[in-house]
Amino acid sequence: MTGRPPNHYLSPRFGVINLSAGFVPDPRTLNVTAGGNVRAGDFSSSCVGFISDAPTARLEWRAGSGSLPLLISARSDTDTTLVVRGPDGSWHCNDDGAGDLNPLFAATAPQSGRYDIWMGRYSQGTTNAVLNISEVIGNVSTAHGSLDDDCEYADWDDPDCW
Score class of each variant (00 low, 15 high):
131 L>M: 08
136 V>R: 13
35 G>Y: 04
74 A>C: 09
117 I>Y: 06
85 R>E: 14
122 Y>A: 06
145 G>V: 05
71 L>T: 03
24 V>E: 14
52 S>H: 01
148 D>Y: 11
23 F>Q: 10
112 S>D: 13
26 D>T: 12
144 H>G: 03
129 A>I: 10
75 R>T: 15
141 S>Q: 14
89 G>E: 09
53 D>L: 11
31 N>M: 13
60 E>W: 04
131 L>W: 04
64 G>I: 04
62 R>D: 07
98 A>C: 05
61 W>Y: 15
74 A>R: 01
110 P>I: 03
101 L>M: 07
83 V>K: 02
84 V>L: 08
132 N>W: 08
18 N>V: 12
96 D>A: 06
40 A>W: 00
39 R>P: 02
108 T>I: 05
84 V>Q: 04
18 N>K: 14
63 A>S: 14
66 G>L: 09
25 P>E: 11
44 S>M: 10
153 Y>D: 01
80 T>R: 01
49 G>A: 06
86 G>P: 00
23 F>Y: 13
158 D>R: 12
22 G>K: 10
86 G>A: 15
87 P>A: 11
48 V>K: 02
147 L>R: 03
154 A>R: 09
43 F>A: 06
93 C>P: 02
48 V>N: 04
150 D>M: 06
70 L>P: 05
123 S>W: 12
155 D>Q: 03
114 R>W: 06
50 F>C: 05
85 R>I: 12
121 R>L: 08
92 H>P: 00
160 D>F: 06
83 V>P: 02
137 I>T: 12
43 F>R: 07
119 M>E: 10
120 G>W: 05
128 N>S: 15
37 N>D: 14
58 R>K: 14
146 S>L: 00
148 D>P: 06
29 T>P: 03
49 G>K: 01
159 P>C: 06
136 V>F: 09
139 N>E: 13
59 L>V: 10
104 L>G: 03
86 G>Y: 03
137 I>L: 15
144 H>A: 05
159 P>I: 11
135 E>L: 07
30 L>V: 13
98 A>R: 00
84 V>M: 08
149 D>M: 01
89 G>S: 11
144 H>K: 11
32 V>M: 10
23 F>G: 09
160 D>C: 00
83 V>H: 02
57 A>F: 07
87 P>K: 08
65 S>Y: 01
99 G>N: 08
146 S>M: 05
105 F>P: 01
42 D>V: 05
110 P>W: 02
43 F>N: 05
67 S>Q: 09
113 G>Y: 07
81 T>A: 00
125 G>Y: 13
126 T>M: 05
40 A>E: 04
78 T>S: 15
89 G>K: 12
